[in-house]
Every structure is written in C-alpha cells, then in structure tokens.
C-alpha cells in the first residue's frame, strides 16, 4: 500500500527565512553568491514497501529522519528525488490540532478537521456524537476554540483524528494528551484505531510498546535505513548499538518516554 523507492529528501535550511527582494537585489548587485541557505539530506535513498496488514515500527536516534519519513508518507513533504506511491486514506497523527481555526466554534472545527481527513459533512455528522462523548466537550461545542484550554484542544483533536477509520495510520509517539484519566482512555482508543487501520506506521522510542504493537521494525539512522526486519530483531540490534555507541555521534539519545502513543 505504501511504496517508496529511492526516496531522498534534501532540506534546505534558510538562515534567513524571510529572504527578501531587497536582499536579493543587493546580492545581485554586489555579485554576491547567495549563502542564505545550507542543505542537508534528511532522507537518503530510502526504499521501503509496506503491504496491507503490516504494523511497522520506526526507530532510531533523534534527528535520524523518522518524523520526516512519516511526513513524506503523509504527502506533506514532497521528496527531492525518488518515487513514492501511497494507496488509501491516510490519517496522520503526527501533530495534533492540524487545521484548527481558533476563531470558530468547536463544532465547526470538527467539520473542518474531518474534511481535511477526507470526510464530508454528512459523514462527520454521523460521528460527531461519538466525538463529543469521547472528548467530554459537548457543552463547549459552540464555544470559539480560542477559549479552549490546551488540554481541551488536544482532547478534541485527538477525538476527531481517532474517530475516523483510515486505511493508513501514521502515528508519532510525541502525542500525549490530557490528564491521567484521559490518557488511559486515549490509550484504549488508539489501540482500537490501530486495529481498524489496514496499515499502521508508528514512530517511537518506547521499545515495549513498539514490540507489542508492531510486527516489523525499521531502524533509521542519518536518513538511511540501517536495518529492516522483524521487530524484535531490529529492537535487539538497536539497543545493542545504542548501548555501545558513545554519544559522540552527535545524536543525543533521549530517555524513552512513558506516554508513547
């Protein structure tokens, strides 16, 4: 369902994001080489085929390109070279709150968010009751989003994102939502979405949840695939490596977070 062949992504980082016409004219006039940006390869020649029913865990040190890979699969970053083919409805749970408009009411935002995930108004109307029920925000439905607390916001967007049944679910571990009681509910719900999705791709540092959820592991390092195979093998190889390697590699390994997924 997902096919990447030789996908590379070159990131251009602009020292001065707000490059201006004024600067461009001065550079042209002074015959200055534009040194405004420097580039690095976030992904290099990644080839990966993921079939229906697979649960893929992506692991690797910070800054290895895990989240970038998810974003490429979600269609957010167009690859610099290589080919990409994604079949089916993709639900990216990469960052919560995508496409919220803070001036509008919670209800309007649910419809907008649903539309972004590929569900029209009618389909969302059938789901909105369950969304209010799950998020516990029914009495705030008419309130403009700017008056929501951050906990309420993340609950709402989590509820919308997990209410839909996607073909491909992209999950980033950094999703942590709400208070303890909500977290327990959220965990349960995420598991049920994972069950409903044909393909799940999970980025995490938490080895226990990775080995519990996933069937296949992909270890990414410096933008390339280091190892690809059954999850337990990959985890073992990865933990051995991390245990030995000195942090001189430049990538600081962080403590695995408890609230993965």
């Amino acid at each position: 369902m997902i096919e990447l062949s030789g996908v590379s992504l070159r990131f251009t980082t602009y020292h001065d994001k707000y490059y201006s016409l004024k600067r461009a004219c001065i550079d042209l006039f002074l015959r200055r080489e534009t040194s405004n940006h420097s580039a690095f390869w976030a992904l290099r020649d990644v080839s990966l085929g993921i079939a229906r029913g697979e649960r893929v865990g992506i692991l690797g040190p910070n800054g290895a390109g895990k989240s970038t890979l998810l974003r490429v699969m979600a269609g957010i970053y167009p690859p610099t070279s290589g080919r990409l083919r994604v079949e089916g409805r993709v639900a990216p749970l990469i960052e919560l709150g995508a496409g919220f408009n803070y001036e509008l009411s919670g209800e309007d935002n649910v419809y907008l968010n649903g539309a972004l995930l590929g569900f029209d108004r009618r389909e969302m109307r059938a789901r909105i009751d369950r969304i209010w029920e799950f998020s516990g925000l029914r009495q705030f439905a008419g309130l403009p989003l700017k008056y929501y607390s951050s906990g309420m916001l993340s609950r709402l967007s989590f509820a919308v994102a997990t209410e839909v049944a996607p073909d491909i679910l992209l999950l980033d571990e950094t999703l942590s939502v709400g208070d303890a009681s909500f977290k327990a509910k959220a965990h349960e719900r995420i598991m049920s979405v994972i069950e409903r999705s044909s393909v799940v791709i999970l980025v995490s540092h938490d080895m226990t949840s990775l080995s519990k959820i996933c069937t296949r592991g992909v270890w990414i390092d410096h933008g390339t695939i280091r190892r690809d195979g059954p999850i337990d093998e990959v985890i073992q190889a990865y933990t051995e490596e991390v245990g030995h390697s000195s942090p001189a590699a430049g990538s600081n390994h962080e403590i695995p977070t408890a609230d993965a997924a």
Binding site: E95, G97, A98, G99
Partner: peptide, 9 residues
C-alpha cells in the same frame, strides 16, 4: 502555515 505543515492539502 499550520495547516500545510501538518497535513496534506
């Protein structure tokens, strides 16, 4: 920007 960076559109 928030929309473009978070989801395909």
């Amino acid at each position: 920007e928030p929309l473009i960076r978070k989801i395909y559109i």
